[in-house]
Amino acid sequence: MANSEHTVPDSSAFTGWFKSSYSGGSQGECLEVAQGHVGVPVRDSKAVSGPALVFSAGGWSAFVGAVKAGQLGG
Rank of each mutant, 00 (worst) to 15 (best):
M1C: 14
M1R: 07
M1Y: 07
A2K: 10
A2E: 13
N3W: 14
E5Y: 15
E5D: 05
E5C: 06
E5A: 11
H6E: 09
H6D: 08
T7F: 07
V8A: 09
V8L: 05
V8G: 12
P9S: 13
D10A: 05
D10L: 12
D10W: 04
S11Q: 12
S11T: 11
S11F: 14
S11R: 14
S12V: 06
S12D: 10
S12A: 11
A13E: 13
F14Q: 06
F14H: 09
T15C: 07
G16V: 00
G16C: 02
G16I: 00
W17Q: 01
W17N: 00
F18A: 06
F18W: 11
S20V: 09
S20Q: 13
S21G: 14
S21Q: 14
Y22N: 12
S23L: 03
G24W: 00
G24S: 03
G24R: 02
G25H: 01
S26G: 06
Q27L: 05
Q27G: 07
G28D: 02
G28Y: 00
G28S: 04
E29G: 12
C30T: 07
L31S: 04
E32Q: 04
V33Q: 01
V33M: 00
V33D: 00
V33F: 01
V33A: 02
V33Y: 00
A34E: 02
A34N: 07
A34R: 05
Q35P: 04
G36H: 00
G36L: 00
G36M: 00
H37W: 07
H37G: 01
V38S: 12
V38I: 11
G39A: 05
G39L: 08
V40K: 00
V40Q: 00
V40I: 06
V40R: 00
V42A: 07
R43K: 06
D44P: 07
D44Y: 02
D44I: 01
S45P: 02
S45G: 01
K46T: 15
K46Q: 09
A47E: 10
A47D: 08
V48D: 15
V48N: 13
S49L: 10
S49G: 13
S49P: 15
S49I: 14
S49V: 12
G50W: 04
P51C: 13
P51Y: 10
A52W: 01
A52Y: 02
A52L: 05
V54W: 05
F55E: 09
F55A: 10
S56D: 12
S56F: 09
S56T: 07
A57K: 06
G58N: 02
G58I: 01
G58T: 02
G59W: 01
W60M: 11
W60H: 06
S61V: 12
S61I: 15
S61R: 10
A62H: 07
F63T: 03
F63Q: 03
F63I: 03
F63A: 03
G65F: 12
A66S: 15
V67M: 15
K68L: 04
K68Q: 11
K68W: 05
A69C: 11
A69R: 10
A69F: 09
G70I: 14
G70C: 11
G70K: 07
G70E: 10
Q71Y: 15
Q71G: 09
L72Q: 14
G73A: 08
G73R: 08
G74Y: 14
G74W: 10
G74E: 06
G74A: 12
G74M: 14
G74C: 13
G74R: 11
G74N: 09
G74H: 05
